[in-house]
């Protein structure tokens, strides 16, 4: 195909005689059928991608409703539908879910408390090494979580040797690690909002006699709030689903839900984890719907579409 050929189709239409018109019509038809092939190809890819992404989730949900008592096999589609496994979820899994929930809540809250001032400072101050400071704030995202995991584990050992308090396998030890990986999400989303911030809004407030603090609370904060929500959500979900960092920082009998699920899959499992997994899927769904109602998915995607999970 050459540029000339493209031009020819257009030229055909201009100097059309009865003869060339037939040629042009043929070309147009071929062009249209190619369009159709292209259209379908695109949609086939889209459908494939969605089936690919969602099939495992649907299988987990479906298989969780398969009954059959003691010798139940994991089956999809469920052979004997029942909800018995929802009553068989052992306490251990609820404890793990509780720990994950507490950790993720604390991590996202702390990430907001630490990340929002950081973002304000990054965008609004004019320190000389600002780019480098930005790199430091982003680095927990770039460092593979496994690497952070062993780095924190060794740090906790050394701190333990020095002070007698070993943080691995404790809530505080897990929390510090999770806050560390959660901060970049809040910093990222809030920086993105602040960079588009219209300064005239603040100037107007100040010139009308509002104090700087009042201006911040009544003007700046409401504008950056969607960014804060988005960052907090990303932080929560990353912390709630993390395996590679937590696997080093948990102790036997004190594990987060993803780690519990991970070791179950590596060793041995019964269908009750399908039921708890389904509850987690539903929980994520509910969180998403609430977020969509409160902030709007649109804002969420525009702000932090390039977040990086693990």
């Amino acid at each position: 195909m050459s540029a000339r050929e493209d031009g020819l189709i257009a030229a055909d239409a201009v100097r059309a005689t009865p003869d060339t018109r037939a040629v042009a019509a043929g070309k147009a038809m071929r062009w249209r059928s190619r369009q159709a092939v292209n259209f379908w190809l695109k949609w086939v890819m889209v459908v494939l991608a969605y089936v690919f992404l969602h099939a495992p989730l649907i299988v987990v949900i479906g298989a969780s409703f398969n009954g059959g008592g003691e010798y139940a096999a994991i089956e999809f589609p469920p052979a004997s539908p029942s909800i018995e496994w929802y009553f068989e979820i052992p306490m251990q899994q609820f404890e793990a879910l509780g720990l994950s929930f507490a950790l993720a809540s604390l991590a996202s809250l702390s990430a907001v408390i630490i990340g929002v001032p950081a973002a304000l400072g990054l965008v609004r101050s004019n320190l000389p090494g600002k780019t480098l400071i930005g790199v430091v704030f982003r680095s927990p995202l770039q460092i593979p979580a496994v690497v952070s995991g062993i780095a924190f584990l060794q740090m906790y050992y050394l701190v333990g040797d020095a002070t007698g308090f070993f943080a691995q396998g404790s809530f505080i030890g897990l929390a510090i690690g999770h806050i560390f990986i959660a901060i970049p999400y809040v910093v990222g989303t809030v920086v993105a909002v602040l960079q588009r911030f219209d300064h005239r809004l603040e100037e107007a407030a100040l010139s009308l006699g509002a104090s700087p603090w009042r201006t911040f609370r009544r003007v700046t904060l409401p504008v950056i709030m969607p960014g804060v929500y988005a960052g907090a959500l990303y932080a929560f979900m990353v912390s709630f689903g993390d395996v590679p960092l937590s696997i080093f920082l948990t102790a036997p009998g004190y594990v987060t839900y993803p780690v519990e699920l991970f070791s179950a899959l590596e060793n041995d499992f019964d269908p009750s984890i399908l039921a708890s997994g389904t509850l987690v899927i539903l929980f994520c769904l509910v969180v998403m719907i609430v977020v969509q109602r409160v902030v709007g998915l649109d804002a969420l995607l525009k702000i932090g579409g390039t977040g990086k999970g693990r």
Binding site: L57, I58, G241, V243, Y257, L261, C284, G309
Partner: peptide
């Protein structure tokens, strides 16, 4: 469609892998 992507991205990878294991189980569908 986009929310479909976001939801599946947010759900922990362990659950998705669990689904894959079930799909490819020896006596699976």
């Amino acid at each position: 469609l986009l929310s479909g992507i976001v939801v599946s991205t947010f759900i922990t990878i362990v659950i998705k892998v669990f689904g894959i294991i079930i799909i490819f189980s020896a006596d699976g569908w």
